[in-house]
Design a protein around this nucleic acid. Structure first.
Lengths: 109, 109
DNA sequence: ACTATATATCGTAATATTACAATATATATT
DNA sequence: AATATATATTGTAATATTACGATATATAGT
């Protein structure tokens, strides 16, 4: 036990869950917001601005990168991260369809 | 360690992370989708339709309920669950603002 | 080549999550 | 009241997450 039974669900359900999970941490939301305002962002800046250890930030960045939400390119001695437009579009579509499928009706409990 | 440092982040960041986390599991996405198509939904139906134990479904329902995404009312011997419109609206607003703040620009890495 | 700087990875402790059997609780029916 | 049915809770094992110190790696400048 303790292991999610992914085989019970559709690949769409698993994919959406994976994307949501990657964003479901305040540090990773803060990281994404920082990238969203600056468009690009150097890893080192995040270590200074958020109050977490360098290893922790690096770990969070890897998690966002592993599901394809961000991408990083080496820029001299540092690494520049930015949004992966493909995945972001997918996120908007999937979450939008999911949240948008709710129609408020009177017959509720 | 092993404990999220919520004090480092804004309450908005923590709240959004909490809502995303509640949805970030394929079983809970499946539960929500089931509620979305039927508008309301009896807990017992979920146990039959998803292939998980009754205790597991009940646990997932409690998680969704604890963050206010769904609400349940006792209906005789069973419990009827439905979307909490307030929280759903909050979700749409928060996630919409978050995802929508990305503007694709050429200057990316 | 050596040094400094930036980031990633490893190892690990504390905590959280997931799943389920067993059991408790609560309502409806007889 | 006793029984059946539906859901919640408890306890627990397996696994995952979070955070960070220590260390490795990789590039830039001297």
């Amino acid at each position: 036990m303790g292991l999610t039974k992914t085989e019970m669900f559709t690949s769409e359900q698993n994919q959406l869950a994976q994307l949501l999970k990657a964003m479901a941490h305040p540090a990773r939301i803060a990281i994404l917001q920082r990238i969203l305002v600056s468009n690009t962002c150097i890893c080192g800046d995040l270590v200074e601005e958020l109050g977490l250890a360098q290893a922790t930030i690096s770990q969070h960045l890897r998690e966002l990168k592993s599901v394809g939400i961000i991408q990083g390119t080496i820029e001299g001695v540092s690494v520049c991260y930015c949004i992966n437009p493909e995945t972001w579009k997918l996120l908007e579509t999937q979450i939008g369809a999911f949240l948008g499928s709710y129609k408020l009706e009177a017959s509720c409990c």
